Amino acid sequence: MQKKPIRLGIVSALREEQTGLLAQMRDMKTVTRGMRDYLHGNLWGVDCVCVLSRLGKVASATTVATLIERFDVSAVVFTGVAGSADPDVKVGDVVIAESLVQHDMDTRPLFPRFEIPLTGQSRFASDVGLSEKLHRAASLFLENDLKSAISLTQQQIFGLHRPRVHRGLIASGDEFIGSTARLRELREDFPDLLAVEMEGAAVAQVCFEFGIPFSVIRTISDGADETSAIDFLAFIREVAAVYAFHTTRRLCSILVEDGC
Rank of each mutant, 00 (worst) to 15 (best):
A125H: 07
A137H: 07
L186E: 01
G259L: 02
H40W: 05
V94W: 11
P112F: 03
H161V: 15
R136N: 12
G20R: 02
V31S: 07
A202Y: 05
V91D: 01
T66H: 11
F190W: 04
I230K: 15
H166F: 14
R249K: 05
A125N: 07
V49P: 01
C48Q: 04
A181E: 15
P117H: 03
D104L: 13
V64F: 01
F71E: 13
G259H: 01
F245Y: 13
E209T: 09
R123K: 15
S122N: 07
L194W: 13
S228I: 09
A149K: 01
G168V: 02
T227F: 14
M28R: 14
P191S: 04
E69L: 12
E197P: 00
T107N: 13
R187M: 06
A171K: 06
L22R: 08
I212G: 04
R123Y: 10
K4H: 03
F114A: 05
I10M: 04
T227P: 12
Q205M: 13
D93N: 07
I220L: 14
L110W: 14
Y243A: 13
S228M: 10
H246F: 14
R182H: 15
V77S: 00
G80N: 10
R7E: 05
I96E: 02
E143R: 03
A75Q: 03
K4P: 06
R162Y: 08
T63F: 01
K147F: 06
R36F: 02
E69A: 04
L142T: 00
Y38L: 08
H40N: 14
T66I: 12
L118E: 14
R182I: 14
A224S: 01
E175A: 14
F208W: 13
T63K: 10
I150Q: 06
V256T: 10
D127N: 05
G41H: 04
S84H: 03
S131A: 11
L140C: 12
D145K: 09
A229Y: 10
A234Q: 11
F235S: 07
E98D: 13
P109F: 00
E143I: 03
S74W: 02
M198L: 05
T248K: 05
C48P: 06
A224M: 02
E98Y: 06
Y243K: 11
C260E: 14
D27M: 04
G80A: 04
E17C: 01
F214R: 01
P87T: 08
Q24M: 10
K57H: 08
Q154Y: 13
L55Q: 03
F190R: 00
K57E: 09
L39F: 09
